[in-house]
């Protein structure tokens, strides 16, 4: 394990932080610290250059206008793509998740995404609001997915692109799959925040950076929360 600190970069908290998105950053930070790993967290506003030396980049949710602005700035900056090519991990939620793809809809128009994953997003006929559960794609070795979704978009994965999970309750991408897994990138529609409800995903991201599985934590409260939320859907 490297003695260097794990660098967490929260991308544009001034644009992409609709509801509790800071939570995912705080959870990654705490779960690293509790393993004795050094960690540095920073937020980068959209009028700043995105540092390319980060280890895990977080993109949160946002309204249409900020999402469109974030897409423009991230495309012009180019730093996220270079970081990913270097081996950085990405955890993207909701509007931030849609940005990873080839295109998305905002304010009724189609916009270009960051083209980091072969997928595209458009508008669904209904808004997907409520609890979601799913079975995580088996290779990731993570227990059932749980969270709260609230989005008007639908996401279509390109051929050969793996979802994060198959949906057992809720809508997700299209009623069948939810989120995306591509290399060291994870995308999801889920709030909760997602890593509070799925700490194993936080550990997965950290393990990609340290290059080894992490020792388990006690996790009394996250386990109780997961149990309660998953049971509520049965």
């Amino acid at each position: 394990m490297s003695t260097e600190a794990i660098r967490l970069v929260w991308v544009y908290p001034d644009l992409l932080s609709t509801y509790g998105d800071r939570g995912n950053l705080l959870i990654l930070e705490q779960r690293a610290r509790r393993r004795g790993l050094a960690v540095e967290a920073m937020g980068v506003n959209y009028d700043q250059a995105l540092p390319e030396s980060g280890d895990i980049y977080l993109l949160g949710g946002g309204e249409d206008r900020p999402q469109v602005l974030a897409a423009e700035r991230l495309r012009a900056d180019g730093g996220l793509g270079r970081a990913v090519a270097r081996g950085a991990a990405v955890f993207a939620v909701c509007a931030g998740y849609q940005l990873l793809g080839n295109s998305f809809y905002g304010n009724g128009e189609q916009y270009a995404g960051l083209e980091l994953v072969d997928m595209r997003s458009d508008r669904g006929e209904t808004r997907a609001v409520g609890e979601l559960s799913g079975e995580v794609t088996p290779e990731l070795g993570v227990p059932a997915l749980t969270g709260f979704e609230n989005h008007g978009g639908r996401t279509h994965l390109g051929p050969g692109v793996r979802p994060l999970a198959t949906v057992t309750h809720g809508i997700g991408n299209d009623g069948a799959t939810e989120g995306v897994w591509s290399g060291r990138m994870l995308g999801t529609y889920l709030h909760g925040p997602a890593l509070a409800r799925n700490p194993a995903l936080a550990d997965l991201l950290l393990s990609w950076i340290v290059g080894a599985a992490l020792p388990p934590l006690a996790d009394e409260w996250p386990s109780k929360l997961r149990g309660e939320r998953l049971a509520a859907l049965r």
Binding site: Y19, G20, D21, R22, G23, L26, V129, G130, E131, F148, N150, H191, G192, P193, A196
Partner: peptide
Amino acid sequence: GLDTSWLYD
């Protein structure tokens, strides 16, 4: 509101 994510705000 049904979403508790705001607790992290």
